[in-house]
Design a protein around this nucleic acid. Structure first.
Lengths: 160, 160
DNA sequence: AAGAAACAGTACTGAATTAGTCTGCTTTTA
DNA sequence: TAAAAGCAGACTAATTCAGTACTGTTTCTT
């Protein structure tokens, strides 16, 4: 399967929790850990990374905590994923670093790897955090032209 | 990054090689291994899996080998990926198997994981093997930075 | 009919990656 | 100034993955 790390999954969960409870002034790592049933050190680490990538704003000190840096409508989930998983690449070859692959000079796939990558990425870039945080309400995404496309009809390929 | 295993990458490479040289009556594992600069046992294993999933047809015996089971225009790369990586799922939660996740009863993300999954999958389902096997003829253009961008969906999100 | 060439399948090993934990430090406010 | 909270990196354990080896089965050729 195409893999998203557990930590990324947790990260998405945390961000959703922040969105869902954003009436609160701020969110401490401890609170979020409890609410999401995740170990506190892990949550702490994730929140720090999300902060470093401009997705959360942090306040230190005894009354500190985290708040969302932007409206959830303005946060594509690709940003969260990139923050936690590093540069977006399906394989080593599709990254921008050269020389990672022995086959590189002879590999005719390299360019197309980039394309696969781009297809996945642009598809995910249309899903916003606000879409994720409202369970059950996401029945459509926007296609390349900005039109809404029902999710259910989007599936091609067979179900396994 | 979203991860595709090396073996899957090799599998895509092999399938492309078969397509590109399909004037040959058949393709032995040995030939393909040499042409793709991959170890022969690995190639053998991959070809067998691809065959089991109905992507290649095999002929045993001294004059045996593999041929493409269908026209490359009819093979979405999701099929190749699913064959080599197992059921399409970005995280454990998004698979159909229940009970894998401790958080399941309280996890409000579960449904949306499915959505993310579906978004990626339906995007990839539109890319056919024939598209991959013809480098440079793909429906993609280069943007200002030299990155390939599919013309079907204007890439949103920022480039990292 | 026998042997060679090629596919089929399984099991094991070593390596790489990842998740998670621990420890200590810095900042801020009551 | 002490406590609460964030900051940072190192370390360990577990899991996953790639690769290899070995054995069996099929079919063609001589």
């Amino acid at each position: 399967m195409i893999r998203l790390g557990k930590l990324t999954d947790y990260g998405l969960l945390l961000m959703c929790q922040v969105v869902r409870t954003r009436s609160r002034k701020n969110h401490t790592a401890r609170e979020l850990a409890k609410e999401c049933h995740l170990p506190m050190p892990t949550v702490s680490k994730l929140l720090r990374i999300l902060h470093q990538n401009g997705l959360l704003a942090s306040q230190r000190g005894i009354k500190g905590g985290y708040v969302l840096a932007r409206d959830p409508e303005l946060i594509p989930i690709t940003e969260i994923i990139s923050a936690l998983e590093g540069p977006f690449a399906l394989t080593e070859c599709s990254s921008d670093v050269a020389g990672l692959c022995d086959l590189e000079p002879s590999c005719p796939l390299k360019e197309n790897q980039r394309v696969i990558n781009q297809v996945v990425r642009s598809a995910l870039a249309r899903v916003m955090l606000s879409d994720l945080a409202r369970p059950m309400q996401l029945t459509a995404i926007r296609d390349g032209k900005g039109n809404l496309v029902p999710i259910t009809g989007a599936a091609i390929g067979r179900t396994q």
